[in-house]
Design a binder for these strands. Sequence first.
DNA 1: TCATTTGTTTCATG
DNA 2: ACATGAAACAAATG
Length: 263
Amino acid sequence: MPELPEVEIMRQYFEKAAMHKTISALEFHDPLFKVFKTSPEDLEQALIGQEFLKTERIGKYLFAQISGGNWLHLHFGMTGDLELFRHNELPKYTRFVIQFEDGDKLAYRDLRKFGVIEVVESPEAYRLSSNLGEDLLSITKEDFIKSISNRKIAIKTALLDQKHYAGIGNWIADEVLFNCGVHPNTSCQNLNEAQLEELLLDAQKVVREAIQKDTHYGDFPAHFFVNYRKEKAMHPDHPNSPVERLVVGGRGTFIVPEKQKLQ
DNA sequence: TCATTTGTTTCATG
DNA sequence: ACATGAAACAAATG
């Protein structure tokens, strides 16, 4: 699920669900502690009796400021999300629960456990220490072009690298490459500045539109490539060129061959 | 049984 | 040290 737009919607959900309410207890439901980078004791120390003051997001990484100091960092891996609940049965695949004094409970769910829960000093400190780029929506054209133009890797692999600009995931990369008519295996060196700028602007546009639709895929415009992102599907603009699947950088990748030729 | 999945880290290689 | 690419991580689905 979670690429930049999904995490932005999750941030807005967290704002509504968890802000300014006293935390009374925590629950841990991941026996091997795969998703926890901070120990339960330290999480309790940091969170219990405190409240969340505000949220920030960098790419796919979500942060919430804790009143007692430091920030809670959440990453959602491939299958993570949040669910506010009050009843007794645990939402499916719940790994972590934050209980509030008012009886609300916030579940962090993550089927595959690729996500991360930890306490960090600040979003910016985390960004710098983990070599994370700036958020896709705030990076400048110049920085984007500089970071990509001399690389010797496939453009799709470069788009998925979170090191220079954070937020693009697998479906958005395919979406943008389709929109710009670029084959995902094109070497970065073979793209000129105008093409790179077009890729950035399109990525930002796709992200904004997805956020505006609350990332409900069903509400996306009909021309969105993600609607046809499966083998042999037919994009309405290319009725004679069925969608093809290939693997780029180890990730499933879909293209319309007629529009996206290798250069 | 095998391949697939909207992510990231780690390891090996050059 | 750095860039690159493959494998690993975990769990469900078809």
